[in-house]
Design a protein around this nucleic acid. Sequence first.
DNA 1: AAGGCGGTCAACCGCCGGGAT
DNA 2: CATCCCGGCGGTTGACCGCCT
Length: 328
Amino acid sequence: MGRPPCCDKANVKKGPWTPEEDAKLLAYTSTHGTGNWTNVPQRAGLKRCGKSCRLRYTNYLRPNLKHENFTQEEEDLIVTLHAMLGSRWSLIANQLPGRTDNDVKNYWNTKLSKKLRQRGIDPITHRPIADLMHSIGALAIRPPQPASSSPNGGYLPAPALPLVHDVAYHAAGMLPPKTEQQQVVIARVDADAPASPTTTEHGQGQQLKWSDFLADDAAAAAAAAEAQQQQVVLGQYHHEASAVGAGSGVAVYGAGSSSSAAAAGGDVGGGGGGDDGAAAFIDAILDCDKETGVDQLIAELLADPAYYAGSSSSSSEMGWGMGLLNAD
DNA sequence: AAGGCGGTCAACCGCCGGGAT
DNA sequence: CATCCCGGCGGTTGACCGCCT
């Protein structure tokens, strides 16, 4: 059963807003505030859909919006955050005062993605295009192998672990200094990773499981062990976040109200590894996001120059993004 | 001058999550 | 618990504009 339309489309005006309509909407919001958008058109005397009113207000009429060009600092921040979060424009826009998600999205699609491409960076994965082409080439020449017979050091099936996860671990301080083995695993796992967990072939909104992309070899075992370890640390992060958030204006994880903490840490004691453990870990990341812990994550990440600014000289590791746009 | 073309951006569409009932 | 309703989100569209031929 589909939802009924939010308004009577036959009696609703569409297309560009006129100054008169803007004035009516502004007059209404200035006296009545925002909220209950479905009633706004009627009360404000507008023949518009409520959603259209909300969009017009939030993207154009809202006070304190910036309408000038994006600064270099804002560009760098968008690139950094896109590498972290993928196309979650509202989260990115939250870090840019006066900018809307629509602004950021349009700016990315029309300017920044092209800029990155011109500089040899894939705007989706934030990896050098040359590296991606190399990976694609490697995929193309490998004969298919049964997963069960994959030898150590063999081919790992095209992994789809999003880069964003790795970033989130860094941001939360969840990744301990990587061992050599872990670096190998991570490098392999995210070699071809899409930037978002909800991309094309896996269907919109479908939760990815690490185990779907892991071969049952030593590398898989190492990755699973790493995931389990990260779950433990995530639980610690949640615990700490409640203290940090209280002092920073960020929404606080209420004591006893943190279902995410249960999801992250509660399962750890039970030793729920494998599919359940990996899925729970991803759920915990998403829960953390939902409870606005993502703001804290982002703040911590941005405060850590070692992460994205690139301490590594290898193009196969993070560090190629920042500063590239400054090279104009 | 006019038509084609590409870039930009405001607006729309459809889906989803969460609160209310 | 199921359903409804609302706000929010990301993807996409289409109008507009400037540049080029």
